[in-house]
Amino acid sequence: MSDQLLTVNNLSVAFQSGSITTKAVNGVSFSLNKQESIGIVGESGSGKSVTATSILRLIPRSFAKITSGEIIFQGRDLIKLSAGQMRKVRGNDISMIFQDPSTSLNPVFTVGNQLVETIRAHRKISKKAAKQRALELLDLVGIPAPDKRITMYPHEFSGGMRQRVMIAIALACDPQLLIADEPTTALDVTVQAQILNLMKDLQEQLGMAIIMITHDLGVVWETCEQVLVMYAGRIVESATVKELYQRPLHPYTWGLLDSQITESQDSDAPLSSIPGSPPDLSYEVTGCPFVERCPYAEAICHQETPPLQQLADGHAVACHFQTGSNTLERKEHAYREGTFTRS
């Protein structure tokens, strides 16, 4: 119990646009221990970012709403906090870094300015002390010559360096939890590895928990212990990383795994992707949300939504045919283009 840092219970988020309600997140539950890292994977639009930003209550207030659930962080339900209390959590207890470092830094202020303002938003210290801290942070994230860099504007940095700055800002107040929303997607492949290594090092050094959002199962493999697979605003499978690789259960996860480039892969072999597209979340989903794209779907899948069922070893999956008594046979190349046609 004392180890538990964050528990999300039955979180649902909806966007309202005119008369259309989009249920972007639907009853998501998971929990996270101190110093643990958890990965969230899933296709574009599966609700990863919305889940993450809801934890910090950063979804646009005017048209998005948390419709149900609780987010217990260190014993407090963040949803019930006042705006002022919530502000004190952001950047202080929970920090976030975003996908594109070139757009998440304000172009018209120096890097130092943006670091110092974060520190001084939460710590009552002098400008000078804050600047000293900023220099230490830049050094910590591996930016050379911090005393020169601190007076520069974001556009004078490379993409990787900008993401380092973002990490420095996120770490400014020693957060317990760092949410990283696709922190490497916008970067070059070589830089991606550097940033991931940096994050891993810093996590060990500073002992924080990480929620790592990504499309790339490889990133999860490198950095996380636990992984959640999201689809259509729901968690469809959750397991330890090792378990997921050795014994993936959900057909959607199989599809995701098939569509990853693996090192051993023969470069001529066609990369398969899951045909079709996720359901439109502005309509009520009946049955399994994956049914239209699932090569294994049967009648029941159209009628009943499978719940997320806990199996042995903390492995959970939401599929009618993976309940322990039922098991599916994973077919080779089930998603390969041409071999799969929609019914």
């Binding site: 004190k88 959590v89 975003f98 757009t103 304000n106 938003a121 400014a172």
Partner: peptide, 12 residues
């Protein structure tokens, strides 16, 4: 994005 980022830092 940088406005969201600024909010995520806990600025007023």
């Amino acid at each position: 994005d940088y406005i969201k980022a600024a909010r995520s830092k806990g600025l007023k």
